[in-house]
Design a protein around this nucleic acid. Structure first.
Lengths: 199, 199
DNA sequence: TCCTAACCGGAACGAGCGCCCCGATTATAT
DNA sequence: ATATAATCGGGGCGCTCGTTCCGGTTAGGA
């Protein structure tokens, strides 16, 4: 391991923190495609300063996504501990809201020119592991149909985020989210796949 | 109105048709972001030839999207005529498949840097009208819950396409699509919004 | 066959953006 | 206060891509 490099100079540390904060907000608003110059401008520094702290635009983006994933894992674990049956639904709704508030995260999640598992294998594994946990919990509690796995949930999240971004008003989420939730509930009969129209 | 301009020279007409065909395939594969040079290369013409027939990259993209929308409207009307109760579901599944086969259409639909209603008002109106028709039909047939409108369906399509693009294998659609379908079905009780976990 | 207007290809231009470089500036130890 | 090494800012390079331009080529009527 490289020894802990000597502490940053005071101004450098301040700038680094400011860049991280501003980059998070900017990626959230504009997505991963925003120019580095825009982030630098908003942070009140030069582009060179951004590149001194993060060797690449992609590395800056990754740092922020990793942070964000960790926050979500923590938040979700707390929710699921309080109510195992509802944990998954709280998580799904929360992730859907990210579609409206954090475009960068949404792009990273949907894999738009960014391979999450390849770029951040540890964060991705922890996230997927957490998803498996709360899904299993909910299935044990009987609030989610048993024929679904974590990959299915991930797919649903991508869909929910796309829908949430498509319609900016949360009103529509109040109309469409219940449809998803109803579909995730345990079916009445034993039949779990396509259902015939009732006669 | 400008009188019908004199017919194109034979080679020009051939090139125009070839560009349209190749552009459709290329936009479908790579999305609206593909360079014009790539389309020209695949069509075996120069970039100048593309621009002679379509003044702008966007106008070429629009022409193709409009065509595609018309095809889908026609196909869906035929399906719905054959089975009013299933028409909407056939349409939804078909649109979901576009997520895997036509990236350009998917981007146009989701409004990724492209305002469908503003760019192609006529095609968009016809498409939305058709959606309203088949939704009403299905609701009358009792196969779809009555508290949804065309805007909700449009939102669901955006979500389905994002999901379908996320996971290339149709296996996953076989797992997730039934969840959506179950959610769209008429609920057993009169309750149509959020449902409490059963006790 | 021959003429000419229409058409063709691809070089070139300008704008946007990731990233690097270097002279000027500033924090900090002495 | 001063020296010095870290840091700063922003101009510049190289590349991509949309769009235009123009010298050469060809379709098609006379």
């Amino acid at each position: 391991m490289t020894e802990k490099s000597r502490p940053l100079r005071a101004d450098a540390a301040r700038n680094r923190a400011r860049v991280l904060q501003v980059a998070y907000e900017t990626f959230a608003e504009e997505g991963a495609g925003v120019p580095i110059d825009e982030i630098a401008r908003r942070a009140g520094v030069g582009a060179g300063t951004v590149y001194r702290h993060f060797p690449t635009k992609e590395s800056l983006f990754q740092a922020i996504v990793a942070d964000r994933l960790r926050q979500i894992v923590e938040w979700t674990r707390a929710q699921a501990a309080a109510d195992p049956g509802e944990g998954l639904y709280a998580f799904l709704f929360q992730m859907a809201e990210q579609g409206a508030t954090d475009l960068g995260l949404t792009e990273a999640f949907a894999g738009s020119g960014f391979d999450l598992a390849a770029a951040l294998p540890d964060a991705e594994k922890e996230f997927t592991g957490m998803m498996t946990e709360i899904l299993t919990q909910a299935q044990r509690a009987g609030t989610v149909r048993p024929d679904l796995d974590a990959a299915d949930i991930k797919t649903l999240i991508v869909g929910l985020q796309a829908m949430r971004r498509f319609r900016g008003d949360s009103e529509l989420m109040r109309r469409v989210y219940p449809v998803i939730r109803a579909g995730l509930a345990v079916p009445d009969s034993a039949e779990t796949s396509t259902r015939e129209p009732r006669t």
